[in-house]
């Protein structure tokens, strides 16, 4: 008897769709992945919907509406493993910038009829609502890390995604440090690797799209930046990006908010 293929589901919450697009961007691997699993729910790619339970659910996006805060529980119950993908799902995303302000004011800036809009005060990561088996970081995620996570979960092993800083990868690829050599402020020392240390290789400072590394010393980095003449407001803004609501970045941004 043939073995049943594992059922893969992809779910979307508040997001730009870029992380699930990463799966379709695996042009060389897509048909092989589709051969190894049954794509049971992936509305961006297919009309077909297969009922749960699912062996692996990939969740993109953050929770921003009362309806979504309910919906995620149903997905958790239907999923053997639940993996969150991207900065929205793992940290609340860029839309978590509302968490620092009054959301009512935000609604009235964008929409003529605020009474038509239903939204929560805060944009929160999936892990604030349900148990998450693994978080894949990045804004956007790295597609090769995504293939690694799929392979790991389908084969019952732990994904190999390093938690160290962007600095390590700059050294590995032989990129000259933009902070030391050019005096360009860089979040690389406190940011988790995964992008391939892209920004310094393009002569700009890292802007933190993979979120905080494990045990980041943000205070020490901020002191360095201050010494380079970066203002308190600019420091606050630097941490308040695509992973603003990840705790180490949130706390550091608040330390520089006057």
């Amino acid at each position: 008897m043939a073995l049943r293929k594992p059922k893969l589901a992809v779910w979307k919450f508040s997001s730009c769709d870029g992380c699930q697009l990463s799966l379709l961007d695996c042009e060389d691997e897509l048909l092989a992945v589709a051969d190894a699993v049954e794509i049971a729910n992936f509305p961006e790619a297919s009309r077909a919907v297969v009922k749960g339970p699912y062996d692996l659910s990939l969740v993109e996006g953050s929770i921003t509406t009362p309806h979504d805060a309910e919906r995620i529980h149903g997905i958790r119950r239907a999923s053997k493993f639940l993996v969150t993908i991207g900065a929205c799902a793992t940290a609340g995303g860029i839309q978590a910038l509302r968490n620092f302000k009054d959301v009512k004011e935000f609604i009235s800036i964008v929409y003529a009829r605020p009474d038509y809009i239903e939204t929560l005060k805060k944009s929160t990561p999936i892990t604030d609502h349900v148990f998450v088996d693994f978080e894949l970081r990045g804004c956007p995620i790295n597609k090769y890390q995504l293939v690694e996570v799929l392979s790991a979960f389908l084969n019952g092993r732990k994904p190999n995604t390093p938690p160290h800083s962007v600095c390590v990868e700059c050294k590995q690829r032989g990129t000259v440090c933009v902070m030391v050599a050019h005096g360009t402020p860089c979040l690389g020392p406190v940011t988790q690797v995964g992008c391939g240390a892209l920004c310094p290789a393009y002569m700009r400072g890292c802007y933190g799209c993979f979120g905080p590394k494990e045990t980041p010393n943000t205070a020490a980095l901020s002191a360095w930046w201050s010494g380079m003449g970066v203002s308190e407001r600019d420091l606050m803004r630097a941490y308040r990006g695509f992973n603003a609501y990840a705790e180490p970045f949130r706390k550091e941004s608040e330390a520089h908010e006057k």
Partner: peptide, 9 residues
Amino acid sequence: EPPRFFEAF
């Protein structure tokens, strides 16, 4: 699709 308020932030 939930609103994300780009113009505001």
